[in-house]
């Protein structure tokens, strides 16, 4: 993981990590620690959940062939929005559309309770908008959060 480059005056920074679960976990912790020092940002908990899920998805799906991948992350706060941009050079797992926002069904026998499928619904329920595009072999996921809103 590279050192973060904070620019407190403009409330933005960028960082990068390799596409491994360990590096992604370290990056989430570093980003959230940085955001907690931004006075206008009241969504650090939400960002922690969403960023963890988004980076896990990149490691699991974009780079599912096991190649040593890269992830770049940009974060900026302006007025009432915080925007995360997550870029990676993996496969286009999301080009067919973003997964749905419905949480997995829990009204089942205990032995059939779901152990996955919560990631995208968590992202969709905590972010105010999620956008995706793929250009020149680079995936770009842009996730916005409303600042100063009543938390979910």
């Amino acid at each position: 993981m590279k050192d973060m480059m904070p620019d407190l005056e403009h409330q933005k920074f960028s960082t990068a990590c390799s596409a491994t679960m360990e590096d992604a976990s370290q990056t989430v912790q570093a980003v959230v620690s940085e955001l907690r020092s931004w006075p206008s940002v009241d969504v650090a908990d939400e960002v922690e959940i969403v960023l963890a899920e988004a980076l896990t998805n990149v490691v699991e799906h974009a780079y599912r062939d096991g190649t040593a991948g890269w992830i770049r992350l940009r974060c900026r706060a302006c007025e009432d929005r915080l925007v995360l941009s997550i870029l990676d050079g993996g496969g286009g797992a999301l080009v067919k559309g973003l997964p749905g926002a419905d949480m997995p069904e829990l009204e089942v026998d205990t032995s059939n309770l779901p152990e996955g499928g919560f990631g995208w619904p968590l992202i969709q329920s905590l972010a105010s908008s999620v956008g995706y595009r793929r250009r020149l072999g680079v995936n770009r996921l842009e996730i916005a959060f409303q600042l100063g809103a009543v938390p979910a």
Partner: peptide
Amino acid sequence: DFVDSSGLGAIVASMKALG
């Protein structure tokens, strides 16, 4: 401090394993 959906899935799996 923190559990993500993978951690949640692991907790559910641990509970299911108790039968």
